[in-house]
Amino acid sequence: MNNSHRRIPAWLTDYLGMAGALGLLLLIFGLSTENFFSAATFGTIANQIPDTTIMAVGMTWVLIIAGIDLSVGSVMALSGAVLGVALARFGIPLPVAVVACLLVGLLCGLASGLIVVAWSLPSFIVTLGMMEIARGATYLVTQSRTLYVSDRLEMITDTTLLGLSAPFLLAVLIVLVAQFVLSMTVFGRHMVAVGTNETAARLSGIAVRRVRLAVFAVSGLLCGVAALINTARYQANPNNGIGMELQVIAAVVIGGTSLMGGRGSVVSTFFGVLIIKVLGTGLAQTGAQEPTKRLVTGCVIIAAVVLDYYRRRLRKTGTEAAQ
């Protein structure tokens, strides 16, 4: 019957759909506000994207293995705090401080992952604990004060290539690498298998715990990377990244990754981040206040998952009648 839908790969239609949604959003804001299409607007958006994107990449992997990581915002803050303290208070050389920052993220991720696999606990509750621990540690490390270090990190924000900032390029690179690992490597296939059916994965000889642990470690490490960019832009503020985990999860879910595990795409997550950020900036330009912004963002998240439901029903040609 309809042979054409076999030839266009599913991922391509997904990406086109997301790009269409983004284009529509840009069009709406472009028409409704006078100077939406300006360098300043896009500068603002571009500045906000990299750290969120990098954390959303880790979150995509975590959701694919049917987990969730609520600690990303706090872990990023803690990594940034260590970076700030190392530079401002102890005068540690920059490269060493950067390594310390990354290491803190990695260790937090490893700790969550170890606890999750050692006692087979739900990651929701373990990372909820880690979220509080990391935030508390951040206040302790910074003594609840902002450390002004962005001048030491100028090279991160000021380096540009082809008119694009280094953080933006780094984020895109991470997205591409993570997508490649997910769809083309053995490890990626193991992640999908673990997220789809853990029992079958174990009986197929997959080291389920090791995969889980690795994914949480990567998520933590990426928080460390995001912390470098975030600190360079906003200083080492102990309140950085509060509520960011929700924004990150929202972006991943808008990108069509399933909270039930086994299904997701990093590139789609990137589109999800763009949609969230364009929406936020656009609404701000129309003069919307915080309450309106949150109302609209909430509606968009729900609309995205509802759309996703229908899209999957369409694809799963076998229409199962109600149980």
Binding site: V192, T196, A200, A201
Partner: peptide
């Protein structure tokens, strides 16, 4: 269903899982 298959994945992916190396 519970122990052998990855139900949402394709036949090809299912066969590949123990043979990825």
């Amino acid at each position: 269903k519970e122990q052998g298959l990855f139900l949402p994945l394709g036949v090809d992916r299912n066969i590949a899982v123990p043979n990825l190396s």
